[in-house]
Write a protein that binds this DNA or RNA. Structure first.
Length: 704
RNA sequence: GCGCGGUUAGCUCAGUUGGUAGAGCGCGUCAUUGACGUUGACGAUGUCGGGGGUUCGAAUCCCUCACCGCGCACCA
């Protein structure tokens, strides 16, 4: 009998040691796994951002992916879980800018190379921290195949993809409205902005014979087009293209009448003026009619010289002054103070987004989205839960072209070159190498981080000619948060189909958010953030893992309660004591070849559970599988079978006793196996004490 | 505005193809020096959000309403 059983189970004395044994065994690498294995099982880890500590959401995905992997490894697959780390472009740059701010520094004015190197050092330091924490959670991923999104081979491949897409006409340079964050000095995708409903005064001004409404008087300096619906009877006497002189903010101007169907006659007076440079809708109208576009607000959010006396003023300051001036001129008709308006803000700093027209690189999404939809229609990708497929579909059917340029240094450089930039004879070349001839200037923009992470399943498996690519691509399951269903998942599918000619995974498992004990979203400002590492320190990693899995259906948010974690710590100890009892009572005994009838029945009962649970695992109902095993072990094996075994073990009937001893040892062995994917540490520790076991539990065959 | 969820025991949630309602925690009573007090046994609490329909039978399928949550959105 092992002396370790004298104390309650102590995770802190076990986990580090066990993880080292796993790592030293080499079994995280499928090439080293024992036995004949032909069928691969592959998961690509969503690369955590290398810019801070792991949070509860990371703990959830690591638990799920680890248990999928461990299950398949025990089933005899060439199980491979590929870890990575994401430089997380804008996200990390924002984190780093905050750090600079605290030190009284700013990225503006810094040498780009110097800034890049500083962020790189910061990220690499965090990457080490992140990897350590992933290990602490028991992740059986193959560290020898780890990749970072800024590894040279990754960067090179991502850049090649851009050039290829440009050659195929799927990437274009376009002058378009972008979401500009005046604080961060970069454009953002729609997904990097938040729409906030606000109460903003709605002004109605006299514009010649018309009344026009606006919430943004500060953009109105350049408005020289007045637009109405072509069928609006009230304005039928005004002809498209007709001009008129109107008195405006800084004096008289000549306005032109434009008829456009996008104007809603029901809204306000049915007439509006447009500011194409600072509004997406207005831009579209201007483009349709070939109208002039003038920039009114600069990149810092201040008014340009066109505003005359208001030049250099910040928007917030200028707005009321402009209204005042128009009011004095008798041009203010009315003010609705209670107007509900949706305002776009930067998702990181909450600064009001200023639409600006800018030359950027765009991906043509229509043909790519169609490819993705067709693949899903052919049944090549299953969504778990199924309803997430609807969300995916909605998104793919309504996708807009994707702006992939970011004006930040922290990222993969866009391989494009300009000659005579900004001139009439501007030349642009997409190429990794500098084009021949003089005067080429490199694009200083970097890719949106999703441009590289979208290619992650390909890059991780060594696309296009790495040694693993043929074996491990396409992968089996992509497990990630349901909040990424339209941010990341579609991009991986698109790149997978476009470059790899196959959908990058067969299934998408989408977990919900991990919320606090009352189901409220965790946030630093609310102070309800639960750190997974605090919990594992207190109750053990196995306990945290169980509490994240049991009853946690995919797609549904989870309330993480400390008492639940505590409950599974008790369970780990229960298992510990079950093992202790069984091992004490079977020490030195030989297994008998046949069980007495009563024992055979108990053995069959567990066999039935194995069948049931295996099916659940294969169909990703791990939340049910975990609960069933838990129930069996505690309330059937311990409460009933062990209790009724006591008289048998103490009794005179040697045949019954030997049969029961054989039974108990086999029930324990299989219970420990079944629990291993969920509670890898305590089960591996027990495995070493069960007689007749060889090698590590992590490679023991799954019971049948 | 559009979309997606949810509504089941005091709390947090399961309930896979329709077959007499479940778990954990909490609560109550009792037991136990036991493999384990990080224990065990027993127990109480539910018109499964409202209404309608399909069915021999509905928490489960269909329709509808209400409320809560989340996401998306270029109405000036």
């Amino acid at each position: 009998m092992d002396s370790k059983f004298t104390k309650p189970y102590d995770p802190s004395q076990t986990e580090g040691r066990i993880y080292e044994r796993w790592e030293e065994s080499g079994y995280f690498d499928p090439d080293n796994l024992p036995g004949e294995r032909s069928e691969p099982f592959t998961i690509v880890m969503p690369p955590p951002n290398a810019n801070g500590d792991l949070h509860a959401g990371h703990a959830l995905f690591i638990t799920l992916e680890d248990l999928f992997t461990r299950f398949r490894r025990m089933q005899g697959y060439k199980a491979l879980w590929l870890p990575g780390a994401d430089h997380a472009g804008f996200e990390t740059q924002v984190v780093y800018e905050k750090k600079l701010e605290k030190e009284g520094r700013s990225r503006f004015g810094m040498d780009p190379k110097e800034l890049y190197d500083e962020i790189l050092a910061f990220t690499l330091e965090n990457k080490k921290n992140m990897e350590k924490q992933v290990r602490e959670l028991g992740a059986s991923c193959d560290w020898s195949r780890e990749k970072f999104t800024l590894d040279p081979d990754v960067v090179a491949e991502v850049q090649r993809t851009f050039v290829k897409m440009h050659e195929d006409g799927l990437v274009y340079r376009g002058k378009r409205t972008v979401n500009w964050c005046p604080k961060h000095q970069t454009s953002l995708s729609d997904l990097e902005t938040v729409n906030v409903e606000e109460t903003t005064p709605f002004y109605t001004f006299k514009y010649g014979p018309f009344d026009i409404g606006t919430v943004r008087p500060e953009t109105k300096f350049g408005d020289k087009y007045v637009v109405m619906h072509p069928d609006d009877a009230r304005y039928k006497d005004w002809k498209h293209g007709q001009t008129l002189d109107v008195e405006w903010i800084n004096g008289p101007i000549t306005a032109t009448v434009i008829k456009d169907e996008s104007v809603d006659p029901e809204f306000g007076t049915g007439v509006m003026t447009i500011t194409p440079w600072h509004s997406q809708v207005d831009f579209e109208i201007a483009k349709r009619h070939g109208l002039d576009m003038t920039q009114i607000i600069d990149w810092r959010g201040k008014l340009l010289p066109i505003a005359q006396e208001f030049e250099s003023m910040k928007i917030a300051e200028a707005r009321s002054k402009i209204v005042e001036k128009l009011s004095v001129k008798g041009l203010l008709v009315s003010t609705d103070e209670k107007y509900q308006n949706v305002v776009k803000r930067c998702y990181k700093c909450n600064t009001m987004i200023e639409p600006q027209v800018k030359d950027q690189w765009f991906v043509s999404m229509k043909p790519l989205a169609k490819m993705a939809l067709d693949s899903v229609d052919r049944g090549e990708i299953a969504f778990i839960p199924e309803n997430q497929g609807k969300v995916f579909r909605y998104w793919m059917e309504n996708t807009l072209d994707w702006n992939i340029s970011r004006q930040i240094v922290w990222g993969i450089g866009i391989p494009a070159w300009f000659r005579n930039r900004g001139e009439a004879d501007e030349q642009i070349v997409a190429s990794v190498e500098r084009p021949g001839g003089d005067g080429w200037e490199k694009d200083t923009d970097t890719f949106d981080t999703w441009f590289s992470s979208g290619q992650w399943p390909l890059l991780m498996t060594g696309y296009p000619d790495g040694k693993d690519y043929a074996t491990y691509y396409p992968t089996d399951v992509m497990e990630t948060g349901h909040d990424l269903i339209f941010i990341w998942v579609p991009r991986m599918i698109i790149f997978g189909l476009y470059l790899g000619k196959k959908a990058p995974f067969h299934s998408v498992y989408l977990h919900g958010l991990v919320n606090d004990a009352h189901g409220k979203k965790m946030s630093k400002s609310k102070g309800n953030v639960i750190s997974p590492l605090d919990l594992t320190g207190k109750y053990g990693t196995d306990a945290l893992r169980m509490s994240l899995v049991v009853g946690n259906t995919p797609g549904t948010d989870l309330a993480l309660r400390e008492d639940k974690v505590k409950g599974y710590k008790h369970f780990a100890n229960k298992l510990w004591n079950i093992a202790r009892f069984v091992l004490e009572n079977t020490e030195g005994t030989e297994a008998v070849p046949t069980l007495v009838d009563a024992d055979a029945k108990l053995r069959e009962e567990l066999d039935a559970l194995v069948t049931d649970v295996t099916k659940d695992m294969e169909e990703y109902r791990v939340y049910l599988a975990a609960e069933k095993i838990y129930h069996y072990v505690w309330h059937r094996l311990a409460d009933e079978i062990l209790e009724e075994s006591k008289p048998v073990l103490a009794g005179e009937d040697a045949v019954a006793k030997a049969s029961r001893q054989t039974l108990l040892l086999s029930l324990l062995t299989d219970s420990v196996k079944l629990l291993h994917p969920f509670m890898p540490f305590v089960t591996e520790e027990l495995w070493g004490s069960i007689p007749g076991t060889e090698d590590l539990l992590m490679v023991a065959p799954w019971p049948r």
